[in-house]
Computed example of a mutant assay.
Amino acid sequence: MPMQASDIESLLRQTFPNAKIEVQGDDGVHMAAMVIDESFRGMNRVQQQRAVYGALKGKMDGPNGDLHALALTTKAPD
């Protein structure tokens, strides 16, 4: 079942409660998310993105995942 932007944001908010999170996309399958969180400080981009994928709790796993593609922008606050 395709995911809505609000569903993705809710999952991310559980792991990153104080983050600035913006999720865009309207087809429920190909989405984009920006997550800016202090917990990313000192992490490289791959580590940051792994943390975000982990927060999605398997929703992108395999061909039967609820979310097919998520373009990510991650960083620590300026």
Results as ranks from 00 to 15, higher is better:
Tyr53Ile: 07
Ile8Ser: 04
Tyr53Val: 09
Met43Trp: 09
Met1Trp: 14
Glu9Trp: 08
Arg13Gly: 10
Ala71Met: 10
Thr73Tyr: 14
Gln4Asn: 15
Asn18Arg: 15
Val35Gly: 06
Arg50Phe: 01
Glu38Val: 03
Met60Asp: 14
Gln4Arg: 15
Ala55Gln: 01
Asp78Arg: 11
Phe16Cys: 05
Met1Phe: 11
Ala76His: 06
Ile36Thr: 12
Glu9Leu: 10
Asn64Asp: 15
Met60His: 13
Met60Trp: 12
Phe16Gln: 04
Arg41Ile: 09
Ser6Cys: 09
Gln24Asp: 12
Val35Lys: 09
Gly42Glu: 03
Leu72Lys: 13
Arg13Leu: 11
Gly62Val: 00
His30Gln: 12
Lys59Ile: 01
Gly25Leu: 08
Ile21Ala: 03
Gln24Ala: 15
Lys75Leu: 06
Ala76Leu: 07
Val52Pro: 02
Gly65Ile: 00
Thr15Ile: 03
Gly62Cys: 01
Gly28Tyr: 12
Leu56Cys: 05
Leu12His: 05
Ile21Pro: 00
Ala51Gly: 02
Ala69Ile: 07
Gly65Asn: 00
Asn64Ile: 05
Ser10Met: 05
Pro17Gln: 00
Ala51Phe: 01
Thr15Lys: 15
Gly54Tyr: 07
Pro77Gly: 08
Asp61Thr: 12
Gln49Thr: 04
Leu72Ile: 14
His68Pro: 12
Asp37Tyr: 05
Leu56Asp: 02
Gly28Ala: 11
Met43His: 12
Leu12Ala: 10
Asp37Trp: 04
Val52Thr: 05
Ala33Ser: 08
Ile36Arg: 10
